[in-house]
Design a binder for these strands. Structure first.
Length: 177
DNA sequence: CCCTGATTCGC
DNA sequence: GCGAATCAGG
């Protein structure tokens, strides 16, 4: 694989979004994470905070899609906006708005110290034994992805989605993200 | 041991 | 310019 303009643009975009080098490599295909990092340097793109690198949870300066935030840290307004803009069909739109409203309810009632994982937006082929396999979005649409945040135990889901996984669907829907 | 980014250096 | 190998860290 060579670095076509298209692939370079995608690299720039994903890097700016805060995806890790390995995630970007998986999305581009045909390159290793080292290749991605090397290219990032050659392009003189801004690096990630601190030398020695760090896991996704230890990037102090930049807030990225892989960090975790307190539950009440304004995830909702952005999400609500995005969903409203993204959806087109009337029926779907209505459903989404209901979900968003329920989500707001949940968030208000959630204790302050609970953290909600921010999706790493991984594709199926990017999942590992240690990434949350909670599906997000419509499998028939381009933006379908999995939560992908890190998990530590044997559960297929992160702690947040594990709680959802064993609830009745009607209850899950309220907190679905 | 999993992961992260940074750097080096032969190609 | 490219990226595997290696390093250094969480």
């Amino acid at each position: 694989m060579n670095w076509t303009d298209e692939r370079v643009e995608k690299l720039k975009r994903l890097w700016a979004e805060g995806l890790s080098a390995s995630q970007i490599a998986a999305q581009l295909g045909g390159v290793s994470r080292n290749a991605v990092i090397g290219k990032v340097h050659r392009l003189n793109l801004p690096g990630r905070a601190k030398a020695g690198g760090s896991s996704s949870s230890a990037r102090p300066a930049k807030r990225t899609a892989t960090t975790q935030r307190p539950a009440n840290f304004q995830a909702r307004p952005a999400a609500a906006t995005t969903r409203t803009v993204t959806r087109a069909a009337g029926a779907t739109m209505l459903k989404e708005e209901v979900e968003v409203d329920a989500f707001q309810e949940i968030e208000v009632s959630r204790p302050l110290n609970v953290v909600v994982p921010i999706s790493r937006r991984l594709a199926l082929t990017e999942l590992t034994e240690r990434t949350c396999k909670w599906p997000i979005g419509d499998p028939m649409k381009d933006d379908f992805h999995f939560c992908g945040c890190e998990i530590s135990d044997a559960s297929p889901y992160c702690t947040y989605h594990a709680k959802l996984a064993y609830q009745p669907v009607s209850e899950r829907r309220k907190a679905a993200r």
